[in-house]
Design a binder for these strands. Structure first.
Lengths: 214, 214
DNA sequence: CAACCCCCTAAGCGCTTGCTCACTCTCCGT
DNA sequence: ACGGAGAGTGAGCAAGCGCTTAGGGGGTTG
């Protein structure tokens, strides 16, 4: 499917480009453990054993447990930001750009809901410096979505009395997918993405039938 | 303000009716600690010291740290359920009932965002039996919101292609307020409630100007 | 073959955790 | 006056935590 060796957000785990192999296994193990139990309830022994090595081996590749979380959080946030920025900079009508942003953002959060759960809900456990860095990326994401909505309002296509508040709501709606989405559940990431794109269109006053088609 | 001694969701802390006094102080301390650091990162010593007593005193009133979380989670979930059930059973048009539900549900999550954060985001730390009990309350909440939407669709007032999915989205949107709301921030709980009520009206195809007024 | 580096492990250190125990204090009914 | 009950304490236990250290195998270099 993907001729490019670089993984940029497809269906596979978003850690394909981490080397060496042991480090990648550690990150992947940490993501699953953090997502299941939360950062503080996860032990370094658990991460190491999921990655198939001894507890001490973890510290060859990462200085601390927090650095593992930082790696996950940073890469995840950057990937999420890239998704909405691509939509913002794409061609098409204002509605199409917003639909694209929401649809792909939601799909990413559903497809990678384990990763996304850690990225979105465990950032409070980061060290202060790392936390600040991640918050900056989040602000950029918020700005990208806001500018899509703002542009639509200026063009008279969207009808939004409170741009800032609506942006928060849209992002909040999309992010929270990571919390409740279940791969074994009723809907696929594609379906949720489509549904949410339609709902958001309606939220900005450009909605049609509410099923994602204009 | 409130003549009734029983607190049913007003502005004060929702723990007014817990006795004895020390137990209430413990619950209140636990809520704040859990909300700040998360359940697993909070120590029983921290809770006890916030409540102004020795670590051992905690165990006079609660058998375990988990029981404290259970108490908070249970009461919180029941209160949230009561809010949407009251709206569902109230008189008024379908749109008014939905607006009432969203507005008061969101307002509660914003006003009590410390409590709500624990209630909504720490339930994974509950023991299996307690977890199941809480999940049942959540299902009831979901059912109440869905029935409001369903009734509106049947009456031809709402236009919702996917009732189940839209219900999830509406609840998700409201719940996530607890995550991002900041008491020192730009908007008051009332404002967020109004904004969100308007957004949800639009999501169900009954929206007007998108500012909470029909 | 030896020197080297990298990756890894077994053992364990120092510390914190949830929780317990023996005990004290205060209040209340008789 | 006094015994009992309930609320509280200081000290500390067993277990588990994040992380370190000393050392060992295996491959690539001279």
């Amino acid at each position: 499917m993907d001729a490019e060796p670089k993984n940029t957000g497809g269906k596979a785990e978003p850690w394909g480009d981490i080397t060496p192999d042991a480090a990648r296994r550690l990150v992947s193990a940490a993501v699953h453990a953090f997502a299941e139990r939360g950062y503080h309830a996860t032990t370094t022994r658990d991460i190491a054993s999921r990655a198939g090595m001894s507890p001490a081996a973890l510290y060859i590749h990462y200085k601390t447990k927090e650095e593992l979380l930082y790696q996950i959080s940073k890469v995840g946030h950057e990937r999420a930001l890239a998704i909405v920025e691509r939509a913002r900079d794409s061609e098409g009508t204002h509605a199409e750009r917003l639909v694209d942003a929401v649809r792909s953002f939601v799909r990413w959060h559903a497809e990678h809901h384990t990763t996304a759960r850690v990225v979105q809900y465990e950032l409070g456990a980061l060290a202060e410096e790392h936390h600040a860095e991640v918050i900056a990326v989040r602000k950029a994401t918020d700005g990208a979505v806001r500018s899509i909505i703002e542009d639509g309002v200026k063009a008279g296509v969207f009808d939004v009395p409170d741009v800032r508040g609506t942006t928060v709501a849209v992002l909040s709606l999309c992010i929270d997918v990571a919390r409740w989405f279940n791969a074994a559940g009723r809907s696929t990431p594609d379906e949720v993405g489509g549904l949410y794109a339609g709902l958001v269109l309606r939220m900005v006053g450009a909605g049609g039938r509410g099923d994602g088609r204009s």
